[in-house]
Nucleic acid binder design. Structure first.
Length: 462
RNA sequence: GGCUCCAUCGUCUAGCGGUCAGGAUCCCAGAUUUUCAUUCUGGUUACCGGAGUUCGAUUCUCCGUGGAGUCACCA
């Protein structure tokens, strides 16, 4: 049985890097028929935790991940932590330390001056006298004082830490009695039955401390997979200042959840040359043992490509529904299929797609100047006028092919190239030279609107 | 600064002693298209440096160099 967990601190939104570790944890648990837990690490900042949890669950919901069971809030488990701290106190594996903050600062300064590593000197470790008055003690755990602590990491391999280099009797409860991070993480992971910890490698250096807690409490140490960081363009750890780090912003920008997940799963993980992964394939193939060792830089070029790919392969029903989030309501449009088909292959995002659809549905207000100079020569007016008349004469114009026939007949009779009609017509209908096929555009807006736009263009440009 | 991790095209990556160092993206060119996009074809671009091990190193070892993370009564 595999139990994984995602344990964010309540920052108010789900971070893109957090989503990746959550995804990895989710995939590995689910692939093994296991359990994926969510825990909010709010021992210090007791505020906002409810909201933050909601934001995370909402983001999970959007991408299609779901945690199992109830959400664990550390702020509601204080009595549990207290119990285990008592246990350590009784067994002599932890002790009260009456050193004041000022004394501690002074000690650290001295050590630094001597170029020593700042660390607690253990002065209350075996203290039995009467404690000084007026000092609320912290509780420190008795950490090993020599030797080597080895972390067995599924990504990096075995990592040895010399105890003298990294450890001291660190604080597990503050003077106000509240427990500290490295203590509660270990306690909760153990109590929640977490077998496999997948987390950012910025936690690597915390791991020995947590192992001290595991051992003092007689808990079994889980498997660790420390996932390399995602860096920004400057090569530094990704932070909120690096643009879009809130997962929900990707929905706003018009990315599909499957594109985002596909993008993230390939950041730090791969399966041969495969680039496209459905959730089903991720579930079948993901293994944390295949995670890379090195950090990757966050660059959304590939995300755009993936998103375009998934949009192209998205059903029109679903697209229409998604587009409603961009204030575009197509359900009653009789040419919806033609419209969506015409636009989906040239869209990188839903926002992009919505903008292109508006350009078709709304008559142009302005005409691109360069395009006018290039395509709207004197004879163009004539061609367009004739074309408009042909539309009047024609019967039963519905499909793109109907319009195409009218266009072909005209250029054939006038003995001109397709471009002589196409270019000015494109300008008249869309105000620019790019865009979907004209036969589709006309089928979408209809013959009457086509004529109106032609007249308007002639009147406005000439 | 101490400790720890990391190092293949600009970017994401494959590689697990012998490969013309592969794929994807981006960029460029060509084909298709009335245009743009899609699609297809082709192209430019990478093993951080130095020793060692070996018949042979991108791959193993060591040393540099560079980058990152972390060093709280934060999480």
């Amino acid at each position: 049985m595999i139990v994984t967990r995602f344990a964010p601190s309540p920052t108010g939104y789900l971070h893109i890097g957090g989503l990746r570790t959550a995804l990895f944890s989710y995939l590995w648990a689910k692939r093994n028929g296991g359990t994926f837990l969510l825990r909010i690490e709010d021992t210090d900042m007791a505020r906002n935790n409810e909201e933050a949890a909601l934001a995370i669950v909402e983001a999970f919901k959007w991408v299609g991940l779901a945690h199992d069971g109830e959400i664990t809030y550390q702020s509601r488990r204080m009595d549990i932590y207290k119990e285990y701290i008592e246990k350590l106190l009784h067994s002599g594996k932890a002790y009260r330390c009456y050193m004041s903050k000022e004394e501690l600062d002074a000690l650290r300064e001295e050590q630094s001056a001597r170029k020593e590593r700042p660390r607690y000197d253990g002065r209350y470790r075996d203290f039995t006298g009467t404690p000084p008055e007026g000092v609320a003690p912290v509780i420190r755990i008795k950490a090993p004082q020599s030797g080597v602590l080895s972390v067995h990491d599924g990504v990096k391999g075995r990592i040895d830490f010399r105890v003298e280099d990294i450890l001291d009797d660190f604080i597990i409860a503050r003077s106000d009695g509240t427990p500290t991070y490295n203590f509660v993480v270990a306690v909760d992971d153990a109590l929640m039955g977490v077998t496999t910890v997948i987390r950012g490698d910025d936690h690597l250096s915390n791991t020995p401390k947590q192992m001290v807690v595991y051992e003092a409490l007689g808990f079994k140490i889980p498997e660790f997979y420390h996932v390399p960081m995602i860096h920004n363009a400057e090569g530094k750890k990704l932070s909120k200042r690096d643009g879009a780090t809130d997962v929900m912003m990707y929905r706003e920008m018009g990315y599909l959840p499957e594109a985002l997940l596909n993008f993230l799963v390939r950041l730090g993980w791969s399966h041969g040359d495969q680039e496209l992964f459905s959730m089903k394939e991720m579930l079948a193939l993901f293994n944390p043992a295949d995670i890379n060792k090195s950090a990757s830089i966050y660059n959304t070029e590939k995300l755009d490509w993936l998103n375009g790919h998934y949009i192209k392969n998205c059903s029109n029903d679903r697209l229409a529904q998604l587009l409603e989030g961009f204030e575009l309501f197509l359900s009653s449009h009789d040419k919806r299929e033609i419209l969506l088909d015409a636009v989906k292959e040239r869209s990188k995002t839903l926002a992009d797609m919505a903008a292109q659809i508006r350009e078709i549905l709304q008559a142009p207000e302005v005409y691109d100047e360069k395009a006018v100079a290039k395509a709207f020569k004197s004879e163009a007016t004539e061609v367009l006028e004739v074309f408009a008349m042909r539309l009047c004469d024609a019967r039963e114009l519905h499909l793109p092919s109907d319009y195409h026939q009218v266009m072909e007949a005209l250029v054939g009779e006038m003995g001109i190239g397709f471009g002589k009609l196409g270019q000015p017509l494109r300008l008249a209908l869309l105000g620019k030279l790019g865009g979907p096929g004209l036969d589709s555009v006309m089928a979408i807006i209809g013959a009457d609107e086509t004529r109106r736009r032609i007249e308007k263009a002639i009147a406005q440009i000439v």
